[in-house]
Amino acid sequence: MRGRTVVVTGGTRGVGAGIARAFVAAGAHVVVCARRPPEVALPGTRFAPLDVRDPDAVRDFFAALPRVDVLVNNAGGTPYRTLADAGAERHARVVELNLLAPLTVSLAAYEHLRRVRGAVVMIGSVSGSRPSPGSAAYGAAKAGLESLARSMAVEWAPEVRVNTLVVGMVRTELSCLHYGDRDGVAAVSRTVPLGRLAEPSDIGEAAVFLASDAAAYITGASLLVHGGGERPAFLDAATVDKSAAEEGDMP
């Protein structure tokens, strides 16, 4: 990635910071943008204030950049909120941030990316492919993001590659808001086949791969980075006689 310029939206903390660090380690020039500067300095990066929900600001931001080789659409997120506990307007803001904003940013970066035969990496979520109670609008937006990436990959080929990282549970500085204290994080980790939550660096390394020449023939793809996913609940709830099943007596 030496000599390449990478823009990471929402790149000041958590998964975004892990992605930014991975690209810095790979030799890239990294610009991170968010509404607020990072609380902890990210060596090797340049910070630029930006609200990705503001189309005019997004267009001005990319117009001022001399070059963009890689765009990582990472900005997003949602509070826990059941559907009936909020009006449609609040859920619409979640969709705006997690689906419409990546579209806005990608369109603003397109001419830069086309000139250098660059790459877009969307940061998706397993919430886009399974029920997401408490974050239904977020899950719907992430499902839409994968669909958007696949269509974008076809429309923009061969000049721009577009792929999605489908991310599972990640240990960040805000993990306690989702999983509880240390014991809660440990308990949740045990539900993952690999036995742990992802680290932001795991997501960062995968993003670097999809943006690199090693993935030159990969576009329109969704790469699962979830430690094997989740163990199906029915396996723990079932009362099957395993010996009978092994002997072929079970249907």
Rank of each mutant, 00 (worst) to 15 (best):
H226L: 08
G16M: 01
A157S: 15
V95F: 02
D85T: 10
R182F: 10
M122E: 05
G128L: 03
P251K: 13
G184K: 15
G220E: 06
L177A: 13
D183W: 12
S212H: 09
N98V: 02
R13L: 06
A198I: 04
S222A: 14
A233C: 04
C176E: 15
V94R: 00
T82Q: 13
A157Q: 12
G118T: 05
D51K: 13
R150C: 08
V40A: 14
A233F: 00
M122R: 02
E96D: 10
T82K: 14
S212G: 11
T104N: 11
E199G: 09
L97R: 08
V225R: 12
L65C: 07
G220Q: 11
E159P: 13
G124L: 03
A216Y: 06
R231L: 09
V162C: 06
T172E: 10
A109D: 06
G10S: 07
V116S: 06
L210T: 04
V72D: 01
L107R: 15
V208Y: 05
R67Y: 01
N74A: 01
R161M: 03
R171Y: 09
A198N: 13
A101Y: 02
A206C: 09
G229M: 10
L145G: 02
A34S: 13
H178T: 14
L97V: 04
N163K: 04
E111A: 12
C176M: 12
T82S: 12
R90L: 06
G144N: 03
D51F: 08
G118C: 05
L197Q: 15
T239L: 00
A215S: 12
A86G: 02
I123C: 03
G118W: 03
S243N: 15
E205Q: 13
R53A: 09
S147W: 03
Y110N: 08
V58H: 12
R35Q: 13
V6C: 06
Y179I: 08
F61A: 10
V170K: 07
A245H: 08
V15Y: 05
V32Y: 05
L42W: 03
R171G: 09
G16F: 00
V126P: 13
D249N: 15
A206N: 11
L197G: 13
G10L: 01
R150Q: 14
E247T: 15
A206W: 01
H226K: 10
A141W: 00
G3T: 05
E246D: 14
G134D: 07
G139K: 08
D60Y: 09
G124R: 01
E111D: 12
V154Y: 11
H178N: 14
E246P: 14
S125G: 05
R150L: 07
L99S: 03
A25S: 10
V105T: 06
G180A: 15
P102E: 01
K242G: 05
L165F: 01
G87H: 04
W156E: 09
R4F: 00
A216P: 12
A63E: 13
